[in-house]
Design a binder for these strands. Structure first.
Ligand code: FES
Ligand code: FES
Lengths: 144, 144
DNA sequence: CTAAAATAGGATAAAAATATCCGAATTAAA
DNA sequence: TTTAATTCGGATATTTTTATCCTATTTTAG
């Protein structure tokens, strides 16, 4: 469904959000350990998320990654997915036609659109806060 | 969403189904032209579909690919997707955890499951006949 | 039997995704 | 001001996906 990079990116964002709630900055090392992802590769993805204003980085000693507390509830999954995988997964044609067009649909269009629009709603309506809260409560997990 | 190989595989299967309805066998060359896909690559995918009993090949002069008419309505999209991409896309965890487990869910689980199960239903309930019919009627297309 | 028309399948190439490594730049504390 | 702890960014490596090419094998028509 999503690329590995995107999966890591979402998991990392949720982990950072949870820790920012608690006032903690986190390092790529800790992130990759806690979400079970390759460290250097994850670091690249974090850089991309910084550029896309999803997370914030603080350089130098005592630095790390964080998200402004007020922003956590405003960041939608779609923003993260879009920054890493683009929007084709929740906007494009399921059979790979150049674009999904009501007037020139693929044979899967009618049925696929329902599923894909459900995914789009999920991504556009779900914010980092609710996900991070599940993590904090212990009712959801980011690895194993 | 799906891999290129899978997109080509589904489009090719629909095209073959439509032609088998009309009693025509088709070549990889014609298939790739009509679904707008690279010929040699598509041929490999067709071979995989033959091995997985989705389509039938007839070797030698006057050969080509076809699907038994009685089988067309019985072949589900899930069978094609499974043969090429596996079932992770419609059974696996959206955040890439090793498996989707109610008792150890990722933070996206509750919402993602709804979408993913919708996709699973689509794939398991949709058969080649309905798709091929849309193509025949001219109400759906396989390229551009 | 031969020739022509097909699919099958192995070898290879190119591109993209995934992953690692290392030095440069930045920053806070001592 | 020095040092240690960091992120940043470029270079490189590996693996997977996508794609091409060429030969072998099969099969029918003549
Ligand atoms: S045209 Fe294929 S999903 Fe809309
Ligand atoms: S555990 Fe992630 S979707 Fe179910």
């Amino acid at each position: 469904m999503f690329s590995k990079a995107c999966e890591y990116g979402i998991r990392a964002s949720i982990f950072i959000a949870k820790n920012s709630f608690e006032g903690r900055r986190v390092s790529p090392k800790e992130i990759s350990e806690k979400i079970n992802s390759p460290q250097a590769f994850t670091a690249k993805i974090l850089q991309a998320l910084v550029k896309n204003n999803v997370i914030k980085s603080v350089k130098g000693a005592y630095g790390g990654f964080e998200i402004d507390k007020e922003k956590i509830a405003k960041i939608k999954l779609a923003q993260i997915v879009n920054a890493i995988d683009g929007d084709n997964i929740y906007k494009g044609c399921g059979l790979g036609l150049d674009k999904c067009d009501e007037n020139h649909p693929c044979p899967m269009h009618d049925k696929f659109k329902v599923v894909r629009d459900g995914l789009r709603d999920l991504l556009e309506d779900t914010n980092l806060e609710e996900l991070a809260l599940d993590l904090k409560k212990g009712s959801a997990f980011l690895k194993i």
